[in-house]
Amino acid sequence: MNITINGTPRQLTNDGNLSDIVSALGKQPRHVITELNGSIIPSQMRGQTRLKDGDSLEIVTFVGGG
């Protein structure tokens, strides 16, 4: 399955749900925000959200800023 994560094309063998993908990337699910094809996916919905070929996923988090 080919998807785009944060603007970078990636091939995923894992066809799990969004929650699995976040974990597989080594990211703590807490304070990570996910947006799939321009729509925010709330954290409690990640487990039921499956990705498909061609999806565009954004994963953002908090950093220092003024």
Binding site: T8, I59, V60
Partner: peptide
């Protein structure tokens, strides 16, 4: 305190800034 939002770095581990901000402090995201 102000904080910003950025895409996570997929290649390396980043420390979460929120763990260093005490709970009594109001977060203002820019």
């Amino acid at each position: 305190v102000t904080v910003a939002l950025r895409r996570i770095d997929l290649e390396r581990h980043e420390e979460n800034i929120l763990e260093h901000i005490p709970p009594h402090v109001t977060l203002l995201t820019n």
